[in-house]
């Protein structure tokens, strides 16, 4: 067995699970790694994790926005005065206006949440770009910070 061939298999396994994005290539090029470099690499790993979590949250929030939009469209079409509004596991009978009010509040909250998430994502991406510059600057091709 080629020395360290199990290592490259290990790396691709980790990348497939998209958990590890930082990869110092086992290419035989010896570069000195300092504690500061290691901390930067660790931070990059953390940020990358955070980035994926944010992506998931953004997706969930967008889905919610769509559902809320659908609900208000249905509400416009409905001609009943009394609606059923789900609270927890049960449906509460509620006048149409109150349902409309609640939907508006929810929509507003949802939009704010989405904005917050986008801002966070931008800041994470910015930090990742800075770290990429530093790390690629030092390690060139010996490090891989991209996702397959």
């Amino acid at each position: 067995m080629r020395p360290g061939s199990f290592f490259s298999a290990e790396v691709s396994e980790a990348r497939r699970r998209r958990e590890s994005v930082v990869e110092i290539l086992g290419d035989g090029v010896e570069t000195e790694v300092t504690w500061e470099d290691q901390q930067n690499i660790n931070l990059f790993g953390r940020l990358n994790n955070k980035f994926h979590e944010l992506e998931d949250e953004i997706k969930a929030t967008k889905d919610m926005a769509e559902n809320l939009e659908d609900a208000s469209n249905e509400l416009i079409l409905a001609d009943e005065e009394e609606m059923r509004y789900q609270v927890g596991e049960v449906f509460r009978h509620m006048p149409k206006e109150e349902v409309e009010e609640r939907l508006e509040t929810l929509k507003e909250e949802n939009t704010q949440e989405l904005e917050k998430l986008y801002k966070e994502k931008d800041s994470v991406l910015g930090k990742m770009a800075d770290l990429k510059k530093i790390l690629y600057g030092k390690f060139n091709d010996s490090i891989n910070l991209e996702e397959a």
């Binding site: 086992g26 290419d27 010896e30």
Partner: peptide, 23 residues
């Protein structure tokens, strides 16, 4: 996050030992 740091550190160490060996 802490665990992730330890994993990254270990992975980097493995790569460095491997590279040193090849060298």
């Amino acid at each position: 996050y802490f665990l992730r740091d330890q994993i990254t550190t270990t992975e980097v160490t493995i790569a460095r030992v491997f590279n040193w060996d090849v060298h």
